[in-house]
């Protein structure tokens, strides 16, 4: 579904991604872990071209995203993204946050989008928050709504950029629970996270990115059970 070939990204002289070749299949739940500054967030942000790669190719559903002719706005409608800092629209109500894009992009009428928003809010356990503003909600609630906002576009894949890193510890669980549900429903997911428990439980494949390359990848069982790369062993000994 997503195919990256020798993906490279330089910030000035500093090369953050040094050639990543990956194939993410439909239905896969790829969890990306690694030390901070390793390039894992940059990798994720390249997948929907929020970060423009300086080398290599990205192909999504047969379309080459790195081709300047590609209409990225159309592509991004098929790729939901959830950010570390939620990035909800503060002047819009929760319902408007969710319905804004589908209505503006003429995927749905306002009525259809409102119905969809109510259904999504019920699914994430916040049916009574439709008319609240993001500023009145807790971090965990905001992040759940950010997930609903991305889902409203019916994406083919969901990208999560450290979705629980900015949350108070007691709110991490509620967000992970939604993500777990989403995974069980068969959504293709790429998740950058520090939540090892989530990686082990939900991930179908785990990537360890270190210094801009995929230093190790494996199924959760092998990955945590018998890590090969010494830097991964070191990393796991610190976080587990």
């Amino acid at each position: 579904m997503i195919y990256t070939k020798d993906l490279r990204k330089k910030f000035g002289e500093h090369e953050v991604l040094c050639g990543i070749t990956q194939h993410i299949e439909k239905g896969e739940k790829v969890v990306v872990i690694g030390p901070s500054g390793s390039g894992k967030s940059t990798f994720l942000r390249c997948l929907n071209m929020l970060e423009e790669p300086t080398g290599g190719e990205i192909i999504f559903e047969g379309v080459k995203l790195t081709d300047p002719q590609t209409n990225l706005d159309q592509i991004r409608q098929r790729m939901g993204m959830v950010f570390q800092h939620f990035n909800l629209f503060p002047l819009k109500t929760v319902r408007q946050n969710i319905t804004l894009a589908p209505v503006l992009l003429k995927k749905m009428t306002q009525e259809e989008a409102d119905a969809k928003a109510d259904e999504l809010l019920k699914r994430i356990g916040l049916p009574d928050k439709a008319d609240s503003y993001p500023g009145m909600l807790s971090g965990g609630q905001q992040q759940r709504i950010a997930i609903a906002r991305a889902l409203a576009m019916d994406p083919a894949v969901m990208l999560f950029d450290e979705p629980t890193s900015a949350l108070d510890p007691e709110m991490v669980g509620e967000v992970l629970a939604i993500m777990k549900e989403l995974a069980e429903d068969g959504m293709t997911m790429v998740v950058v996270t520090h939540e090892m428990g989530f990686a082990r439980e939900v991930g179908s494949r785990i990537l360890f990115i270190d210094e801009g390359i995929v230093a190790e990848e494996n199924t959760p069982y092998e990955f945590f059970g018998s890590p090969q790369n010494p830097r991964l062993q070191d990393f796991l000994s610190k976080v587990l």
Binding site: L50, I75, G80, F83, H85, F89, L104, L105, A150
Partner: peptide
Amino acid sequence: IPVGQMEAGRSLGLTYTMTMRTIILPQAFK
């Protein structure tokens, strides 16, 4: 306005102009 607002808009598939008009400018104006 934090860059995250523009990124959130663009990640949903909105164009630069749409995001400016519906998300960034109203906040900036306020």
